[in-house]
């Protein structure tokens, strides 16, 4: 994407385009990566509700895969995940391991 010059930016850095966060990929910030273990998932969608970005895809009311482009690895989804019978459906793993 071509970067705008100072004459082209909006006054006061106001974002005038709705949903423009889609263009702002922050996945490269991540140090820990969440891994979804489907067999332990009870489809509560807590991960989707708590995700501060939009890193969890939901299709037809069902939890989908991670959109890692938007996942900064904050770990909130893993913390909130109730899992099934004491087994977490989301675990955090160190990047590059």
């Amino acid at each position: 994407m071509k970067l705008k010059n100072w004459k082209e930016v909006t006054p006061g850095a106001v974002c005038t385009e709705a949903g423009s966060a889609l263009k702002f990929k922050t996945g490269s910030w991540r140090a820990f990566k969440p891994r979804w273990i489907e067999e332990n998932c009870i489809q509560c969608l807590f991960c989707w509700i708590y995700c501060p970005d939009m890193a969890i895809e939901v299709k037809d009311g069902k939890r989908g895969v991670y959109r890692y482009d938007y996942c900064k690895g904050c770990g909130i989804c893993a913390l909130e995940c109730p899992g099934k019978k004491g087994k977490k459906a989301i675990v955090m793993e160190e990047e590059g391991k």
């Binding site: 010059n5 100072w6 930016v9 006061g12 850095a13 974002c15 005038t16 709705a18």
Partner: peptide
């Protein structure tokens, strides 16, 4: 709809 106060990183801060 607009958003105020976004994070502006080194690639844009100087332009503002």
């Amino acid at each position: 709809p607009v958003s105020y106060g976004p994070l502006i990183l080194p690639d844009y801060y100087m332009e503002y």
